[in-house]
Simulated scan of single mutants.
Amino acid sequence: MSLHEEANLTAPPPARRKLGLALLVIAAAQLMIVLDGTIVTVALPSIQNALRMAESDLNWVLTSYALAFGGLTVRPPTGWSDGLALTFDAVAAVLLIIFVLIQRRGTTPMLPPTVLADRGRLGANLVMFLMGGGMLATFYFLTLYMQVIKGYAPMLTGLAYLPFAIGIGIGAGAVGPPMLARTSDRTVTMTGLLLAAVGMAWFSLLTPDQNALTVLLPAQLAAGIGLGLVTVAVTIAGVRGVADQDTGIASGLINTTQQIGGALGLAVLAAIATAAAQIQPTGTPAPDALTQGYTTGILAGGALYLAAVLVAALTLKRRTDQAA
């Protein structure tokens, strides 16, 4: 056998090389989205001081950013029953209905109905929606804990997030592809969500007086690996089976649902955290009350991950179904 023939036998198939490159691009893109959101989150205390904002209004900074990223408009921070907010809600609902009607009648719709007609693709977007809510809220609460409770400088806060970024890279780039080669998107997604939920439960152990890094570093690594697994599996599930000309639309929809889920989830979880801090017994030191609120919000984010596990179990396809 010639050296040329031996090299051809040992070289990976072209399709597999392209798949590996695609997964690497997905992992890198997700990492950049996470870092982008983290930078905004780390700046929240500085934004609060510069604009003299109440801490209860800070979540609207992230909500505005995430919704603008996702292509929507944000509700004003004056309450869910504010007249102006309700007016905008009504207008948005009418415009959404008109948009759907126009899209259904058009010959070249922006979002072809077939993209979400498949149960697996619909489930992938729902999973990403719920995951986005838990993930953005986690950054929000951890940043406030590190800077408000522990007094970390912005630079140290940013460095403290490195285990999360490393975990994302490990999950999406190193662990996810081999798992996807051996099992289904459904299994990988559920495994990642459960691991991320464990990380959220780990964050709930934070207290004002402890060495926070003993909790932050391992919990972020666990959550990061889990979310990395989810990202790569759900992204593939979200585009599987679509027509070639709709692949870009299906991929963009996955990113959009993550951003919208992050914005809406943060609004809800921030309200839960605020309520948890306010119901602490009279005389509770402020750092303890605030930390209780932050960890309660994080646990509620973990509940979103568990809800996403149920969605994945009911909608994503088993390996035998994927091969069919």
Rank of each mutant, 00 (worst) to 15 (best):
A313Q: 01
T87S: 11
R319N: 02
L310F: 10
A201E: 10
Y145R: 15
L67A: 13
P112V: 07
Q322C: 03
F99Q: 11
L9W: 00
I170F: 15
V100H: 00
G171K: 08
L21I: 07
R52E: 09
G302A: 12
L194C: 12
A28K: 08
G265T: 12
E6I: 15
G158M: 07
A223R: 04
E6C: 09
P14Y: 05
A271S: 14
V115W: 12
T191M: 15
P112D: 10
D118V: 07
F99W: 13
R16L: 15
A92D: 01
T187H: 00
L229W: 10
L126F: 10
A223S: 11
I26S: 04
R121S: 07
L227R: 11
I39W: 02
K317Q: 15
P113S: 09
L310C: 11
L206C: 04
G106R: 13
A90P: 04
V148K: 09
G176K: 14
D321L: 10
V42P: 12
G37K: 04
E55R: 14
L31P: 10
P177D: 01
L193S: 09
A270I: 09
W202S: 06
T207R: 11
A92T: 15
V34S: 08
P76F: 02
R186K: 14
H4R: 04
F203D: 06
L116E: 02
A219H: 08
S2F: 03
L269Q: 06
L304V: 10
N211Y: 04
A93T: 04
G71Q: 00
Q220N: 05
G123K: 12
R121M: 10
A117G: 12
T295K: 10
T257G: 02
A275C: 01
T256W: 07
A68S: 09
G265E: 03
T274S: 02
R319H: 09
I47H: 03
Q259L: 14
L290A: 14
T291W: 00
